[in-house]
Design a binder for these strands. Sequence first.
RNA 1: GGCGGCAUAGCCAAGUGGUAAGGCAACGGCCUGCAAAGCCGCUAUUCUCCAGUUCGAAUCUGGAUGCCGCCUCCA
Length: 490
Amino acid sequence: MKITIYNSLKRTKEPFETIEPGRVKMYVCGPTVYDSCHIGHARSVIVFDVIYRYLSAVGYDVTYVRNFTDIDDKIINRSNELGVSAESLAEKYIDEFHQDMDALNVLRPTLEPRATDHIDHIIRIIEILMDKGFAYASGGDVFFSVDLFNGYGKLSGRKLEDMEAGARIEVDQRKKNPFDFVLWKSSKPNEPAWDSPWGKGRPGWHIECSAMSEDYLGASFDIHGGGKDLIFPHHENEIAQSEAAFGRTFVKYWVHNGFVNINHEKMSKSLGNFLMIKDIVKEYHPEAVRLFLLSHHYRSPVDFTDQNIKNAAAGLDKMYALLERAEKYLGTLPDKDAGYYDEVPVSEKDFWGLFRDAMNDDFNTALGIGILYDSVRHTNRVLDQMPETASADNTQNRHRISNECLHILKMGNILGLFAQSPGTYFKQKKDRIIDQKSFDADAIDAMIEERRAARKSKDFKRADEIRDQLKNMNIEIEDRPDGTIWKVIS
RNA sequence: GGCGGCAUAGCCAAGUGGUAAGGCAACGGCCUGCAAAGCCGCUAUUCUCCAGUUCGAAUCUGGAUGCCGCCUCCA
């Protein structure tokens, strides 16, 4: 089955055919680094991380570029407020971005260019646009003339004459058309500035992406992504600039992810309900955040609520519990890149194949996660039918379990799950809770030991008393063949 | 005003013409000293409403209602 992608430009799903066979060139708009990243950034980054992982996994040679916008009005304003240089402010938030994304188990893209490293290239493109008559200078600013670009509005489906110019912002009188946008912006004293043929200034927002994408991917490339809000004006303007300058189709597939709401409300400054990544990962496992976000189709809005994220966290526990069980049985889990044992009958369902079908259909991770749950349940069922430890069992059964785990690990690898060993996962989780709730782990272990002794001497009354005591402390115990474990009920 | 999206069980959520995935919760069973975990079963004759196309519609068309997003250098 071939991959289909929903193309925002055509408003329909299309078969995915790369410009160059076997190669994918992908550009995704990264953050403007003037503040910490919130859950919305996480979604966008994770969505494209999964697309990157998947395309790579199925054999494409993927060049993935994600930029940093490190010069912009917001950065300048913030740096003035804080009394630090724009450069050091950007540096700080680039570091923080990396910390957040590493925590979320996001792979680094092939390249992470910064706007300020591409000023020369930006100026060259503006010069091309001036030469071709698409741009005009006024004062120290340079504007792009939208009326001269045939096809302006094709991505966002807007017609210039239908839009309410200046409905919400004052129209700049120097513009020939209110929708003309700035390519080069003259600087005020003490603002970061670069020399240009039009005087000292800095690039406009949109032009940097045209420059950086052309630099690393060429004038035409396969996939351009970003949040839905970027469709207009950012991506519309990128198309206009790049196609006007280079005379070629800019991007083949436009991919846009939906928003994250918090308790049914849009995140906004006025509501003050921004959820920052660094705060979320203090409370929830980063992979639970991934599982939650990827449980919805990437184009749909998702609603971040306590209930929903807890649901995902419980699901992740269930998956890791199965992996722990299998690991105990096998001694060690198979490597995700290992081959299947083909001398044992493959399970009645090829879960990895089904997962691939789901991903091939416009990266339907929600459907894929359903298949992942299916395979977890199936593997639990198979394990139920086998002796508890591998020592008493035969090679064929071991290989069968190994194959099932391989399916699960491969799916997890695409979704960015199961980066930890089950042992580490559960230990970290427990340590974190002990730390947060100041539990005395030794005391709990002592109670469990006392209960074990009571059970051994058939004093079930005492054993149940201890269990009830623990339950009152929000601790639940589980008697396994090889001992009793405990966990905190959340 | 222009453009776009969404409405599926108590909750979350897949599903774009062939008879409703998956998760959570609830309930019944197996297992267990009893639990927990795991497994099995059960849980929407039906997909906001009305009309139409079709042998057949959650899926297509028209209309209604409700909710949401973009048109602000917000992912």
